[in-house]
Simulated assay, not measured.
Amino acid sequence: MGISGLTFLLLTLGILRPASLVPLRPVCDQSIMDKYIQDASAIESEIERLCRTSCNFPEPVTVLDTKVNFPAWKAMDRSRQGSEVWQGQALLTTALSQVKRQQPAFLQHLEVIESYLRSIREILRRHHVQAAAEDELLGPTLRVWTVEKLVNIFSSFLRGKVNLFVSGACQSDSR
């Protein structure tokens, strides 16, 4: 019996299941978020050190404001919170792709942030968050003119809305 025959036999017996049939489990390990936040802080410090002179963009980029009104956030339903976080990561991802062309000196740092944003998008998918309507902004936006401010926004986004959403979603999933 060849490999394909063995695979077929295991599938038939129910011992081996195709990965696509296994539902994605939410990511609720706080150490993952803590690691992202710690790494974002390290990148933020490194960018501050590198930007002692000027790290301005020729054109500003738009990102979601990361300020959190805690009573309003707690009053929001989980799907709205998730949509707001999704939109925040989408705007940051778009901003990063623009900045990478304008600031190649920071390419390595920006690619790390971009990787974290892909991970956040996957975490959101595992919590069943979908993209909000493209034309509907769910929160106020900011125009950012420097690499420092962009990285600061990313770091604040992780510590604030992303961390609040994931911890809140995990608490409600465990009930």
Rank of each mutant, 00 (worst) to 15 (best):
I3S: 10
S41P: 02
K67S: 02
V129Y: 00
Q30M: 14
P18E: 09
M76K: 08
W73P: 00
Y116R: 05
S45H: 12
V147W: 00
E111T: 12
A75Q: 03
F8S: 15
T66C: 06
R49Q: 15
P58Q: 04
I113A: 09
V61Q: 10
V85D: 10
P71Q: 08
I37E: 01
G5V: 05
A133E: 09
R126G: 09
S97Q: 02
I32E: 15
C51M: 10
I123K: 00
E84L: 15
R52Q: 13
G82R: 11
R78P: 02
K74Q: 08
Q87H: 02
L124H: 09
V27H: 00
G82F: 12
D135G: 01
D39N: 11
G139A: 15
I47H: 01
V27K: 03
R80W: 10
A75R: 05
G168H: 01
L164R: 01
S4K: 11
N69H: 05
A132C: 04
A19T: 07
K35P: 02
A19Y: 15
L110T: 09
E48I: 02
E44R: 03
Q102M: 14
G82S: 12
S54V: 03
D173W: 02
L13V: 14
P60G: 03
L107S: 05
S115Y: 01
R159W: 05
K100N: 08
F154E: 10
T66I: 03
T141I: 10
L142K: 03
L107Q: 08
S83I: 01
Q38H: 04
L164S: 05
H109T: 08
V85L: 12
E114Q: 07
K161W: 04
E134H: 05
H109W: 04
L11V: 02
L142S: 06
N152K: 13
K161T: 06
C55R: 08
A105D: 15
E114L: 07
V85T: 05
L107C: 06
L10K: 11
A131S: 12
G88A: 09
Y36E: 01
Q89G: 09
Q171Y: 04
S4A: 08
P104Y: 12
V27W: 01
R52P: 01
S167G: 04
I32P: 08
R118G: 15
S97T: 07
L21V: 15
A75F: 04
L13K: 11
G88L: 07
D34M: 08
G160F: 02
M1C: 14
K100M: 14
G82K: 12
S41F: 06
S54F: 02
A95Y: 05
D39Q: 13
D39Y: 04
L150E: 13
L142A: 02
S97E: 12
D173P: 00
K35I: 02
I32C: 13
R52V: 14
F106D: 10
K67C: 00
T66N: 10
I15F: 15
R78M: 11
A95R: 02
R175H: 04
A40T: 04
T141W: 06
L117Q: 13
I113K: 00
C28G: 09
K149L: 09
H127K: 00
R17E: 11
W73M: 02
S115M: 01
E59W: 09
D29C: 08
K100D: 13
R118V: 15
L137C: 00
V68C: 13
M33W: 03
L64F: 06
L50N: 11
